[in-house]
Design a protein around this nucleic acid. Structure first.
Lengths: 232, 232
DNA sequence: ACCTGAACACCGTTCAAGT
DNA sequence: ACCTGAACACCGTTCAAGT
């Protein structure tokens, strides 16, 4: 929370611009970091010592601001050795970074996940690296995009999961009505103590390894079955 | 959009109650069905021919309303033969239903995914069925909950993905800068024409099969590796 | 008990007015 | 060009007042 450097600034154009896309984005991330804090343009303007209307000079609206944040986050994820490692190895640190990068801003993940990716160059170059590595490693051409999107869905879902209160799935209310779930929960909890990781992170690592292994195997298998759209 | 049966109702208590939790929830789902429509209490009240403040008689606030919707959706998912089929078979139709049930309400998925699951009995009984089946099939006790949560993360992420515009990942802007991604996208698109499914559904089926296969294999493998929390 | 109507403290966005 | 300040059309929530 940056305090206003000059709270009672006079009207009219300042001698030197107090705002910039960079400064606004930085303040926006700082605002999105706080947990329960509602991510509003009013609060953002307040933290910058400025009126809300001033923000519209740099971003057309709230959606464009969030899109800007998303673009900056995507470019932060960066490369993870896709050129030197097999795709199924390089994808692991990439997925980890992706999850913590997006999960680090509780006030905004939902908006980031929901907002249509308006064809960002950053995302495209990110995907291109992965697609190239998978192609090089002989992954079936028509399954490359589905595999990447499936991974992304899991990562986004995991980022959202990491924001829920810790004891989310713990059946406190009626342990006698959910005996198997309760004992499974306890077993998982006991296992957790041997690691330096949260339950959400442990689950993510477990699921990620499983998904990547499954995607790898599917890259060499014959076909995938399932019902038609109209049959659902 | 239900129109008000009596738009200019007089003030004071009506002879017979015009609202109920059931009626409000039904109208809320109808409202959440429309794509771009903002899900507001004002719009909900309007569709019920009632003032916004009247809703607070049945739900403490917007969050409680959404929690009520979530509970109703969860109980709709229901059983899918976990008692008679192996968990890795019964889980497939369960996951499909889960995704379409939550994905059917664009205006609300993000809120559903974000809102902390306040210990709903419906969810707990749902998870109990799965946990019992996995336990019966010899799945390692401490991995049952992580497996379920990983699946749920994938499903939530896929539900969000299914709401984005169709050509989301298609690199329209600079196909020459993303050659591998572009050709992979085209190959996937060609493959898609042979099925009666959307790209999102195809990806979901592919990823689901891979994840379940991976989780199954992890249930018989030795250990899962990964970095510690502090090392991320 | 069940709803209206007014009130409160907010939103995001637009736009004339100042320098 | 860059910001303020007022204005607009909204929000969700509270609460006295009516029947």
């Amino acid at each position: 929370m940056t305090t206003a450097p000059d709270a009672h600034r006079s009207a009219g154009r300042p001698r030197t611009a107090v705002l910039s896309r960079e400064r606004i984005l930085a303040a926006a991330f700082a605002l999105a970091d706080v947990r329960g804090g509602d991510f509003t343009l009013a609060a953002l303007a307040r933290s910058l010592g400025v009126r809300p209307s001033a923000l519209h000079h740099y971003f057309a609206g709230k959606d464009e601001l969030i899109a800007g944040m998303r673009g900056q986050l995507t470019s932060r994820v960066g490369d993870h050795g896709f050129d030197t490692l097999p795709w199924h190895e390089a994808i692991i640190p990439w997925a980890r970074t992706y999850r913590v990068t997006f999960g680090a801003h509780p006030g905004i993940v939902a908006a980031l996940a929901t907002l249509p990716v308006a064809d960002e160059p950053e995302s495209m170059l990110d995907y291109e690296r992965i697609a190239r590595a998978m192609h090089r490693d002989g992954y079936p051409e028509h399954r490359i995009v589905p595999a990447i999107v499936a991974l992304e869905s899991f990562i986004i879902g995991s980022a959202l999961d990491s924001l829920t209160p810790e004891d989310n799935l713990r059946p406190v209310s009626a342990p006698d009505r959910t005996p198997h779930l309760t004992s499974a929960e306890e077993a998982a909890r006991a296992q957790l103590r041997t690691h330096d990781r949260s339950a959400a992170t442990e689950t993510f690592e477990f699921g990620l390894a499983a998904l990547v292994a499954g995607l790898r195997a599917a890259g060499t298998a014959a076909t995938v079955s399932g019902p038609t759209e109209s049959g659902v």
